[in-house]
Design a protein around this nucleic acid. Structure first.
Lengths: 143, 143
DNA sequence: AATGAAGATGAAAATCATTATCATAATCTA
DNA sequence: TAGATTATGATAATGATTTTCATCTTCATT
């Protein structure tokens, strides 16, 4: 999904819930859509402030909550105490591996694992809709 | 693994890191080992205080961090703002599959998935210590 | 058993992320 | 353009977790 499609969704959500479209919201959303990491609110705020230093962090918090509600951002907790936001993946699902020492996060995809998950679920009579897989360990630098 | 085996591990870890064995630590650990839910620190503190009201919450926090470090407790965040701790499963590692309609939780084990995880991590230079896998979908009754 | 050094404890204060408050400003409908 | 409603941003408040520090325990050594 490209940025303009996301904007359409956002606008529709705002309208549906009786919220207003504002320059700050648009700019924060736009900035977030351009990221490709698991960005923390702190980091996003910094990015936003670079262009518009008058935007307060409460607005960034509020906007990300909004994006999360309308499905345009995924909120994740990796155990370092901060919520991190991720864009919808363009290229299908991926999982995470997190360094328990330095908190570095890497991503990986493995079709075989996905397949085995579906099979394991099937054995129990379940149908899988979604999943969350996080590996915790040491990154190359901290090993 | 039974409680006494866990105690042995804990003692070994304390010795290795030059920490001391204390009545509070033992009691908190023992209390935790008896739980079978994803207990929050708040809830654990309450349990502990019932028997020994003089134990402070800082000690509970510190002890759970310890247990987490030596692998005797699993820290999890389900997005409600609190860290919850889970005991090691008695019968080897298991993962969860959760029904998104009725919230039923089933458990499964799959050695192959574990193996593939380790391989996927290795490709990125990571060493896996621990993992969390949750499947979300529909159970047989809600399908 | 007594000593002494290193840790541990608990109460309270500090910190960090997040949320709420509130006066002011921007948006939008009519 | 007015009027009503919502948004903003600075600040204060909250809630979970960590740190601080004076005091107490543990444990290896006498």
């Amino acid at each position: 999904m490209d940025s303009s499609a996301k904007n359409t969704i956002l606008k529709a959500y705002l309208e549906k819930t009786g919220l207003k479209s504002t320059a700050q919201r648009d700019f924060i959303a736009e900035t977030f859509f351009k990221t490709n990491t698991h960005i923390s609110l702190d980091e996003l705020l910094k990015k936003v402030k670079r262009k518009n230093s008058r935007i307060g962090y409460a607005t960034v918090y509020r906007t990300m909550k909004l994006l999360s509600e309308c499905g345009l951002a995924l909120a994740r907790q990796f155990g370092d105490g901060q919520t991190r936001y991720e864009n919808l993946p363009d290229d299908g699902h991926h999982d995470h591996i997190i360094c328990i020492k330095c908190s570095k996060i890497a991503e990986f995809q493995n079709q075989k694992i996905e397949q085995l998950q579906i099979e394991a679920a099937k054995k129990l009579g379940f149908t899988v809709v979604n999943h969350k897989l996080e590996l915790y360990g040491y990154c190359p630098d901290c090993a």
